[in-house]
Design a protein around this nucleic acid. Structure first.
Lengths: 196, 196
DNA sequence: TGCCAAACGGAACGACGTTCCGTATCTTTA
DNA sequence: TAAAGATACGGAACGTCGTTCCGTTTGGCA
């Protein structure tokens, strides 16, 4: 338990001062570029925004996924932590599930291209995929089980499958006014209801 | 009614013999490579498989989308034509819709990466997107309207939105045994049922 | 047979991710 | 405080990819 490092990003302490500074600068620059150009923005753009060479990015974040994870870790964690809270505060487990899915969808939809990259089969994004799953799948499973135990929804759906489906529905949901991912996800969740 | 050309691919007639031959060779090579490496296979691979230079590909198919369209046109057309037939032969419009969507999903899922490319925001794939829409949206609208008129499903969903949703759900459905796109699409369709 | 438009092949270009290494900077130690 | 060693930096360089361009070849026709 040395410095709070969780394994997906470089340590924040016990490094040279300039390295620590650059890491922060890089995170800010990446976050900013992600907002304007999406998470698939060229590495050089991020480097330029941060006023740093591309080598520096790769030293701090060996893969692109590591950078994305570092940028969004807090929000993913918040989403994970909201699960149990919703379960405790909602009328029914199904309502909690719906609200939690809404959080998840909002998160994905507001990050340009994140959903797409999550599903990319390009090598190097497995880490990202794995991180989201590690963090969120248990939470989703808990909500799903609760709703299934209450008899509100079918019980043969795994959290993994649901999350992939929801994630997929969010792809390209920005920049297309004719496509409302939230609504479709709502239909999907509705379709989970136990027949009768 | 000259030679069957529909505008998205080069004419088959009134060209030099070698050109006509190469066009066929290219279609076969592309189809073959698409099966083994997916629709995003490098252009050079397709050229190599066909035994031609890359320039030849671009002369016959100005954009990558044109090549993909040419390869799958028959299947897309078949899917489009199946719509009215299903509507006529099924018990209810909702059943017809479900069966038609199944055809669509089967088509997408069996073509490596086609669903993903359909949703790609890379420039150059608009043509592909447009072709699918031109061909299939009217059919989907017809089915949707029939089911809505029969009071079986909600009436506030556009064919465009449904097709995008279904297409999205199919992304990455191959090479992942834990994810069954057909099942999720089924849930989505079920979720369209009119409340009651 | 000889001409020439049509078609061909593949080198070349620009964008990108990623790696590598000479250089600059920090930190430690004498 | 000054020099040495470790650490980090910048950006050139490499490989891959889509796409364009042009010198060369070839098929059709007079």
């Amino acid at each position: 338990m040395n410095d709070g490092d969780k394994g997906a990003g470089p340590s924040a302490r016990s490094k040279r001062a300039d390295a620590r500074r650059n890491q922060k600068t890089l995170l800010d620059a990446a976050a900013s570029v992600f907002v304007t150009s999406g998470v698939e923005a060229p590495v050089r753009d991020i480097a330029a925004k941060a006023g740093v060479g591309v080598g520096t990015i790769y030293r701090h974040f060996p893969t692109r996924a590591d950078l994305i994870i570092a940028v969004y870790r807090h929000q993913v964690d918040a989403c994970a932590e909201a699960g149990p809270a919703l379960l405790a505060s909602s009328e029914t487990p199904h309502a909690a599930l719906g609200q939690w899915i809404n959080l998840f969808v909002d998160f994905l939809v507001t990050k340009h291209g994140l959903a797409a990259v999550l599903r990319s089969d390009n090598a190097g994004f497995d880490t990202l995929h794995a991180y989201f799953l590690d963090r969120l799948e248990p939470v989703c499973t808990e909500l799903l089980d609760a709703a299934a135990d209450a008899g509100e929804i079918r019980s043969d759906l795994k959290a993994y499958e649901l999350m992939r489906g929801v994630g997929n529905l969010c792809i390209g949901a920005d920049h297309d006014p004719r496509y409302d991912a939230r609504r479709l996800v709502g239909f999907l969740i509705a379709g989970l209801r136990r027949p009768r």
